[in-house]
Design a protein around this nucleic acid. Structure first.
Length: 568
RNA sequence: CGGGGCAUGGCGCAGUUUGGUAGCGCAUCUGCUUUGGGAGCAGAGGGUCGCCGGUUCGAGUCCGGCUGCCCCGACCA
């Protein structure tokens, strides 16, 4: 591609609207343009990368035996009413009426449609298992679209759905997708990790996320330093402490703590470690008014774990001041488990404390020397905290380390969540009707592109992993307009490289060298070839890999072999 | 949705305090010079100052309302 005929517009200045790096670079490099909040156009340079990602995904999905389809973006409300999600999904589901006043949705995902197809077309166990996938535009009316293409309202997703007669087949299909995803992200040259995810109401170990590791990632992920255990922080299990709880030594004492409403203030005032305190959080209950959740002062509550507990409202809601006053007679900051009525869940680590400090359920008062069995009524032990770096791994081997990740893929074993309400069933070998089991598997294609940039950039711009780069080679002739020799060599190189099937971006613009270098680096093209009079005097060309800071010179006649050797 | 902020050529901003008919840098176009790290000079084009209403002889500026966008918290690929 001759850059003189490719209308790119790079910008030196960062648009004010862009907060995260990938968004800034995508705008500056002219890969995307914003039309409205969370709605983006993909310009030619950006689309090339998007297509590369799609191609890798298609090849690996096909290789795994999945079959490509395209389903409608807009879907009839009836299907969503049938699955129950018309009422469950909430305002993120964009709904609208057509001219006949019929209800439709803009599809945020396609379980209903694919299940409708399968229930009509798949009648026999002989046709199973089957896996359908598509690369399609999705629409989710996000409360707050942000980070450019990373959390857009309209985005491109590869979604796949597998159908099975039994659990063993589902597990096999799921495993095949796990392997396909691993190949996909490996081929893309991304540093990623598959982690256990919160499996939601389905339960069991049936959901994993694929995260691209990047310091700017929105999700915290944890992994063992000794084995393959990895999980989303939300889903990472915290093991109960090994040591038995010490025997009580102190007597319970009321101490005035005026103004100490937080653990930090409390521990400072009493000159004790936060880990000697417990904090008691009141959340709304599903049956009772409030439920108490107790964690150690230096620990954080894990909302996903907590909202799964019996009696706790899901989603988790912190109790308001009024409910707190009604339940304890005190206010937030001075709540404690002593004398508390109703359901109390205590995190294992908090339960391992003796002689601890907690709120006295009285303004400006705390209790010291508190002990569970002696001073507190019946409580339930539970895992309700976030794990921390250094905690023992739930796998039993090693300790946990933490990293930030960007979720680019998610695989689920759904079971019969959709097939049951939509009545998708086949006849098995014995002629008996069985409800299908289903798996679903998503990759955020547009998000992968942004994540690749988050993970691979420097102060000069993008550093594309080679498999995703819009062009493989950027050819930079210097003084092209004046030097016949440079033009002759550069034109020939462009033609020869192109003839070899190499994607070359030929910067034949009448621009100064600095402009061309800066753009080549901003665009992140992996291999740069420079043709200049200075080098040609000695019969040499210059090469630089985007990640390197030094040039390599080589004989002009060996250009094709030289480049091909570096492209592997 | 709650809280905070912004809205002025394509982009980044000043001008608003104290009302007087819109300016700077980048980008774009033309010419000349320049050509190994975002050039110089000369010239040019481009803005109903987010929208509606009000105050005023006069509003980018003051007042009222609306809209859009960005940032911080609960959802997701």
């Amino acid at each position: 591609m001759r850059l003189s005929q490719y209308p790119i517009n790079t910008a030196k200045e960062t648009p004010a609207e862009a907060e995260v790096l990938s968004h800034q670079l995508m705008l500056r490099a002219g890969l995307i343009r914003r039309e409205a909040a969370g709605l983006y156009s993909w310009l030619p340079m950006g689309l090339r990368t998007l297509r590369k990602a799609e191609t890798i995904i298609r090849e690996e999905m096909d290789r795994a035996g999945a079959l490509e389809v395209i389903m409608p973006v807009f879907q009839p409300a009836e299907l969503w009413q049938e699955s129950g999600r018309w009422t469950e999904y909430g305002p993120e589901l964009l709904r609208f009426k057509d001219r006949h006043e019929r209800d439709f949705v803009a599809g945020p995902t396609h379980e209903e449609v694919i299940t409708d197809i399968v229930r009509r077309d798949i009648k026999s166990y002989r046709q199973l298992p089957v896996n359908f996938y598509q690369v399609q535009t999705k629409f989710r009316d996000e409360i707050r679209p942000r980070f450019g293409v990373m959390r857009a309202r309209e985005f491109i997703m590869k979604d796949a759905y597998s159908f099975h007669v039994d659990a063993a087949s589902l597990q096999q299909g799921y495993r095949a997708m796990y392997d396909a995803y691993t190949r996909i992200f490996t081929r893309m040259g991304l540093d990623f990790r598959a982690v256990r995810a919160d499996s939601g109401p389905i339960g069991g170990d049936v959901s994993q996320e694929f995260h691209v590791l990047a310091a700017s990632g929105e999700d915290a992920i944890v992994f063992s330093d000794e084995d393959g255990y990895a999980a989303n922080l939300e889903a990472a299990e915290a093991l109960p402490p090994m040591e038995p709880r010490p025997a009580p030594r102190e007597t319970m004492t009321r101490v005035p703590t005026p103004g100490a409403r937080t653990i930090v203030e409390l521990s400072r005032m009493l000159e004790v470690e936060p880990s000697r305190c417990v904090k008691t959080l009141l959340v709304e209950g599903s049956e009772e008014d409030v439920v108490a959740l107790v964690v150690r002062g230096d620990h954080e509550l894990n909302a996903v774990k907590a909202q799964r507990l019996p009696g706790v409202a899901n989603p988790l809601r912190m109790a308001g001041a009024e409910r707190i006053a009604r339940a304890t007679g005190a206010q937030a900051g001075y709540i404690g488990p002593v004398g508390l009525r109703g359901r109390v869940y205590v995190d294992h680590s908090a339960l391992a404390l003796a002689d601890f400090i907690c709120g006295a359920n009285e303004k400006d008062m705390h209790l010291t020397g508190v002990n569970w069995d002696r001073d507190v009524g019946a409580v339930t032990a539970a895992d309700i905290r976030n794990v921390r770096e250094g905690d023992p791994s739930p796998s039993g081997r090693g300790h946990l380390r933490m990293a930030r990740g960007i979720e680019v893929g998610h695989i689920f074993q759904l079971g019969s969540k959709y097939s049951r309400p939509l009545k998708a069933a086949v006849l098995d070998e014995s002629g008996k009707e069985v409800t299908l089991l289903m798996g679903c598997y998503g990759i955020g294609v547009t998000r992968v592109v942004a994540a690749a940039i988050e993970q691979n950039h420097d102060e000069r711009g993008i550093i594309w992993p080679e498999p995703l780069a819009p062009f493989q080679v950027v050819l930079v002739p210097l003084n092209l307009q004046k030097s016949a020799r440079v033009r002759e060599v550069a034109d020939r190189l462009y033609n020869e490289l192109s003839a070899q099937g190499i994607e070359v971006l030929y910067d034949d613009r009448d621009a100064r060298p600095g402009v061309k270098f800066a753009d080549a680096e901003l665009l992140g093209i992996p291999h740069r070839l420079v043709v200049g009079d200075r080098g040609l005097e000695a019969g040499r060309l210059e090469y630089r890999y985007r990640r390197d800071s030094e040039n390599t010179e080589f004989a002009a006649g060996e250009a094709i072999d030289f480049i091909k050797a570096r492209m592997r």
